[in-house]
Design a protein around this nucleic acid. Structure first.
Lengths: 207, 207
DNA sequence: TAGATTGTTAATCGATTAACAATC
DNA sequence: TAGATTGTTAATCGATTAACAATC
């Protein structure tokens, strides 16, 4: 019962499960249950069990889930049991904060190249890996040379589509887009959006 | 045909529609259609029409939608035709980037108070509004005094739940949480999450 | 064993889509 | 008018939930 056409919405919840399991691991806990996970995440236990069942059987009746084991399994399923090189475009306030963000450590991602158009930024060193900012004209070649699959866009909205195009043409297949605009990419490329304004505006309706 | 129990998922798309309309406004365009919006956003035209139909009739058969009008209507529906004061907790790299973010301008939000626990940060001025960072012990009283409804959490994960609690107790009803942890709040309080690791991990499965 | 919790089934619930009459 | 596009209906599709046999 595994592997064929898992709903996107299920995949979308797995990283949240993984994050909760990481906390349980850090707390030194051994066993958890779909009930406990559901309570922590505000999700029904049935949904957690159903989601996991798409990938195999990870629990024991009457007992629950071995935390370390399930944690490892989810890391494998999500392919974050390895380190993905990430190319970041945009070295302004936002790009710098992303490059400096310590939260990627141990989660499967490391930003190993940074690009900008601003001549005063190019050549300066930045981020966890302390890499030199390159001119955005080197973006495509760098992606190709290093076979980078994951990109982050942190440019102004007006440049996002162009950058996405360059990334895709060079072989990027996953883009995290911080620019406040919807971008168009081929259907074999995934995009996730991060826009705090959209996040806030999703809540004000209810106020 | 309006106002009773609109699906959450519909509300969630409206800010994206609004964002697209803002671009059309900026481009000086007058009229658009559900087809054009759908093409830009990668959504079916039927879905856009259905979503809008929850709130009223905004278009003209044979013609489409008057861009400025629909833009204004969505701003009213989402209640972003006013300015919401936002309290930000966490003045580290991430908090500073959020405070300095120019993208809130004209979208309904302004960060007017910033809090941290770090004594070396307290008193320094920060963000678009150039406000002095306050000790987090002043959070509750500030929210009450200024009747602030919207909060942003940009603390380490271990402090997020406590901050959320303080915010909620003081009357906050919408929280944008950048901390990489699920927080628990009463059901009348909305939470939106921003976690780049979750965003990236939602894509690696497909690589 | 007795108690607990999984994995799975079937039913329910909700969202999306296709189609088209209405009408600008 | 002829062409285009809305708003809405009904059908389809998909996701969530409740319930429980299996079993640790």
């Amino acid at each position: 019962m595994a592997k064929r056409s898992i709903p996107d919405i299920v995949i979308g919840r797995l990283p949240v499960y993984l994050r909760a399991l990481s906390f349980l691991v850090a707390e030194g806990r051994q066993i958890t249950s779909s009930q406990e996970l559901g309570d922590r995440l505000g999700i029904s236990s049935a949904q957690i069990r159903k989601d996991l069942s798409h990938f195999g059987e990870f629990g024991k009746q009457g007992t629950g889930y071995e935390i370390n084991f399930l944690h490892d399994q989810l890391r494998q399923i999500l392919k974050v049991d390895r380190m993905w090189e990430v190319a970041l475009v945009g070295a302004g306030n936002l790009g710098k904060a992303i490059a400096d963000y310590a939260g990627f450590a141990g989660k499967g991602f490391v930003i190993t190249s940074i690009f900008d158009t601003d001549g005063t930024k190019i050549g300066t060193r930045m981020g966890i890996e302390n890499v030199a900012v390159m001119d955005v004209s080197a973006l495509g070649q760098t992606i190709r040379d290093r076979e980078i699959s994951v990109g982050i866009i942190a440019t102004p909205a007006e440049h996002a589509q162009g950058v996405a195009r360059t990334m895709v043409d060079a072989g990027i297949r996953a883009i995290l887009n911080y620019a406040p605009i919807t971008i168009t990419v081929p259907s074999n490329v995934r995009v996730q959006y991060i826009d705090p304004v959209v996040g806030l505006q999703r809540m004000t309706y209810y106020l």
